[in-house]
Amino acid sequence: MGKDKKYFLDEKPEKLTYGGVFRRINDWARARSLWVVAYGTGCGSIELRPTFTSRFDAERLGMRMVATPRQADVLIISGYLTVKTLKRVIRVYEQMQSPKYVVALGACPINGGMYYDSYNAINRLDLYLPVDVWITGCMPRPEAILAGFKRLQELIDSGRADGWKKYIDNLDRYRENQKKIIKNWKMPNYNW
């Protein structure tokens, strides 16, 4: 860090309020404009390409891939998550701006899947990040992914996709779990 310190907010985030006059129309717009950060953590990202290109065309639901976490709304954990990747995933998730949603793809983030006894893959994702929608399968087909996103849209539209609030409210517990797994935590404590 050192001279780069001014680029980080190294303090605990304040609790965000949610609601207001426009809450209904906000939720409506958020559900119909999901920008997905183009970051594949595991083998599941191979299924995202057909989902977003001509064959299945997720753009008709208002979704699109963006290249930077700052502009994204949705983080897809696509498949198994190694400890090394988990560190990057946490940074990407914390760099995204609220409200933000996490979609876990495949069996691996749920219970480890075929990597359940691996020495460097995590077994349960929701110990480390709040997950809004789980899509099961190994691997889920693009149809299943689209169904999962429809589910996410319903949740957002009815104001029930509030993983980002849970994360901020229970940040200490999440951080404790994350630091149990990641031994060399060489990054700012809060990198919002």
Partner: peptide, 16 residues
């Protein structure tokens, strides 16, 4: 829709 969503998103970044 994108514009409204972006406008109502929270922001927590400061760079100067």
């Amino acid at each position: 829709i994108d514009l409204w969503k972006l406008f109502r998103k929270k922001t927590a970044i400061s760079h100067g």
